[in-house]
Structure formats: structure tokens, C-alpha cells
Design a protein around this nucleic acid. Structure first.
Lengths: 115, 115
DNA sequence: TAATTTGGTTACCTTTTGGTTACTTGTATT
DNA sequence: AATACAAGTAACCAAAAGGTAACCAAATTA
């Protein structure tokens, strides 16, 4: 395989979704952006355990996929604002389900037991 | 951090969910099990690009989390059947959203472009 | 007698992911 | 004159994830 996508991604919708937003950080980043416009530094502050190297590369990848906008202001010090595109916004119901399940007793119990 | 879970998992529901079922294979496996009882070999056949080493370790992890049942029959050749627990079944709406988004034009276009 | 079947495990290796530290840039502040 | 700011990037390294190939058990089939 020559791409990061899983084999046969055309045949399974779950596989397609995981190929695009799977991974440790992408859903968290998308959810943190949500409906607002947010700067790089603010994201870094809301998700403190991500390094800025990884945050920046994940943002670039999401931008390539057309899921987020990146607007760079030519100011000094620099300012860059991120927001969801319409394609990115179409993920919000999914992110909501992700959050809903994370709020269940089941999820909290698993985290408690295995942390 | 001493576990595989992301920092501050107690504070963010999306982070909790990703800590539990994030990764390349878990959602795909859970979705393939779905409402049925399914044998190891059948899963391997439905998800051909996963190695049986990884399939087996993912299944063991999901079992530890209490998301799947594993019933081993003492037969030869062996037979092992997997199914979702009630906790695992509580993920079905989320898996459905995952599949729904994977069926959108947006998802298909991204896969097409980047494969 | 030898191959087949099923559900794995083990050892080994490669790839991917993620983290750390230092550095940059131009303006404003101390 | 030195420092801080924001948003990164580059070089480097460690850890985790994932893949491959070989192997096992005991009964059945050819």
C-alpha cells in the first residue's frame, strides 16, 4: 500500500472514517475547534499534552483533507486562526456521539480501572 | 503517564472515548462483530488486512475492557466465539455514526484523493 | 501416513507515531 | 540592549504499533 489508508477503504464506511480521522489526536482537535474560530496557541493550551510539533502536523493534515480552514494573518507576532469547513462541520454529530459515549458510566469505569 | 491513556482523560469525554476505542482497528472490529456472534477466523476473513497477531491482541484488549465476550469451546480444532457485551452494544450508535460519515460524499472524496 | 483444520503465540523486524530541544522572525516592551 | 511574543520548523531520538514467518495442539480427512 502506498498511502496511510487501510486496505480496501472503498468497501467499508467505518474503515474510511477511521482512515481519515482515526488516530490519537484528530477527533480531539476537531472537537476542540467545534463551532468557533480558534488560534494555534489556544488549542495548545486546551490540549496541553499534545506537543506543538504534533498539533501543527495534525492541523496541516486536516487542512489538506479540507476539514479545516487555516487563515494566516501577516502580523508580528504571527496570528493563525483555525475553524471547521462545512465538510469538517459535517463531523459534528459524530463528535457529539463520541462525547456522549465518553460521558457514560461504562467509559468512565474503564478509564478508572485501567489508568 | 503510566498507561496508554491520554493525559487528563477524566476531563474530556472525547478523549476518554478515543483512549478506549481509538486506534486503527478497534472500531472496525467492534462494527464487524455488531449484533452477531462471530468466530475468530470469520473476523480475520472479513478484515483481511489485519494480521492475526494484531486481531488477537485487539480482541484481548476489548475483552479486558468488558466490551466483548469471548467464549472458548474445548474442541479440536478449537472454536472461539466473540460477541458484544451490553457495554459493547452501547457503542453501536456511535459505530453507526462512524459508518454514516464514511458513506458521505465528503469521506469518499478524501479517500479517493489521497489513496 | 500425511495433510488439514482453528485459534492462536513467539520471536523478530520495520514503520509509524510521538516527544524534546533548540531555533526563527519582526515588532514591542522593559 | 535584551527579552518576550506567536506560530511554527528542523534535527534528533524513544516508544509504540504493526507486520512476517514459523510454530503448536489434537482430531479429522484423504
Amino acid at each position: 500500500m502506498s498511502s496511510k489508508f487501510i486496505d480496501n477503504p472503498l468497501n467499508c464506511p467505518v474503515t474510511r472514517t477511521i482512515s481519515i480521522i482515526g488516530g490519537k489526536w484528530k477527533p480531539i482537535i476537531l472537537n476542540c475547534i467545534g463551532d468557533r474560530t480558534i488560534r494555534f496557541g489556544k488549542l495548545n493550551q486546551i490540549i496541553p499534552s499534545i506537543s506543538n510539533k504534533v498539533l501543527s502536523s495534525e492541523l496541516r493534515e486536516l487542512e489538506q483533507y479540507g476539514l479545516i480552514h487555516r487563515i494566516e494573518f501577516t502580523e508580528m507576532p504571527p496570528r493563525v486562526e483555525y475553524s471547521l469547513t462545512n465538510a469538517g462541520k459535517s463531523l459534528l454529530p459524530l463528535l457529539l456521539e463520541l462525547a456522549n459515549w465518553g460521558n457514560t458510566h461504562t467509559a468512565k469505569k474503564i478509564i478508572k480501572e485501567f489508568t
